[in-house]
Computed example of a mutant assay.
Amino acid sequence: MKRIALILLTCIVSISFAQQEDKEQVLALKKANGFVYEGNSLIKDDFVSGEMAYRQAISKQPNTVAGIYNLGNAYYKEGNLEEALYRHEQAAKATNSKSEKHKAYHNIGNILMQNKKCKEAVEAFKNALRNDPTDNETRYNLGIAKICAEEQKKQEDENKDDENKEDENKDDKDKKDNEDKKDKEGDDKEDKKDKGDEEKKEGDDEKDDKGNPKEDKGKGDEDKKKEQQKPKPQPGQMSPQQIKNLLEAMNNQEQKVQEKMNAVKEKGAKIKTEKDW
């Protein structure tokens, strides 16, 4: 009996706690809905107060879809697309209602279109139609998003083709520059080789057959030319140097004769002069 009584007591306590928890959740939900209603009343004329009311609703009941969804709409109307997208994605995850999911995904698609993310918008509108296939407005937006996504893809492909062409042109230019560089290096090597061969040839010209350096042709030719210009003594004739020596000897002899004649005059006697050769 005691064991049965203990089990009954435990069940009663559990039920009490569950009822208390349910009461608290119901109370929190009522407070959250009250803040949502307050936010709806304030948001048109006082955005800051309306935003605060929605945030209080979310703090009381984090999964209150109405507060999250309405706050996302408020951000969208204010042009804060980033915060609006975050709140609508949060609302889509928080609810199990197809109707609420449909509205959240529809608005997500509109925000993505505003951000020119057409491909992502197509997926958002598809998710909206999965939850409500009868909404023609969502279907229309999906068609617009598909056209936009196709245009963006086409533009991306064209840009990619242009980039590939630029890369190909750059590769061709680099290849041509490398070829020109190689050709120039080849020409420089040929020039150096020709110059080296020419210097080697000049060096070889300065050596005789035995490999010995040859004398300077210019100087040898000049000395040879001077030697040829000198008068060569013919057989039976005196050379210029011999004539010069003879004239000097005659002068010396004449001077001696003159001295002797002067001496004879002084003494009064004649002398016979000798002939010079």
Score class of each variant (00 low, 15 high):
residue 140 Y to C: 02
residue 93 K to Q: 11
residue 125 F to G: 04
residue 91 A to E: 05
residue 65 V to N: 03
residue 58 I to W: 10
residue 177 D to E: 15
residue 110 N to A: 04
residue 41 S to E: 14
residue 190 E to C: 04
residue 222 E to D: 01
residue 79 G to M: 08
residue 124 A to P: 10
residue 153 K to C: 00
residue 184 K to G: 01
residue 22 D to L: 02
residue 80 N to K: 11
residue 84 A to K: 09
residue 213 P to A: 03
residue 26 V to I: 02
residue 137 E to K: 12
residue 64 T to W: 07
residue 193 K to E: 09
residue 80 N to H: 00
residue 176 K to C: 06
residue 204 D to A: 13
residue 137 E to A: 10
residue 169 N to I: 09
residue 141 N to Y: 09
residue 122 V to Q: 06
residue 206 E to Q: 13
residue 207 K to F: 13
residue 15 I to F: 14
residue 163 E to K: 13
residue 37 Y to T: 12
residue 68 I to H: 05
residue 111 I to G: 01
residue 79 G to K: 14
residue 7 I to N: 08
residue 235 P to A: 05
residue 107 N to A: 02
residue 180 D to Y: 10
residue 215 E to N: 14
residue 7 I to M: 06
residue 173 K to E: 14
residue 47 F to T: 12
residue 6 L to N: 01
residue 108 I to K: 03
residue 201 K to M: 03
residue 199 E to F: 06
residue 154 K to T: 11
residue 99 S to E: 13
residue 36 V to S: 12
residue 250 M to S: 12
residue 153 K to Q: 15
residue 35 F to K: 09
residue 40 N to H: 06
residue 196 G to A: 13
residue 141 N to Q: 08
residue 179 E to I: 07
residue 24 E to Y: 01
residue 71 L to G: 06
residue 179 E to Y: 14
residue 67 G to S: 13
residue 39 G to W: 07
residue 125 F to D: 12
residue 153 K to V: 05
residue 263 A to K: 02
residue 218 G to Q: 07
residue 133 P to A: 01
residue 149 A to V: 11
residue 61 Q to V: 03
residue 91 A to C: 04
residue 7 I to E: 00
residue 147 I to E: 09
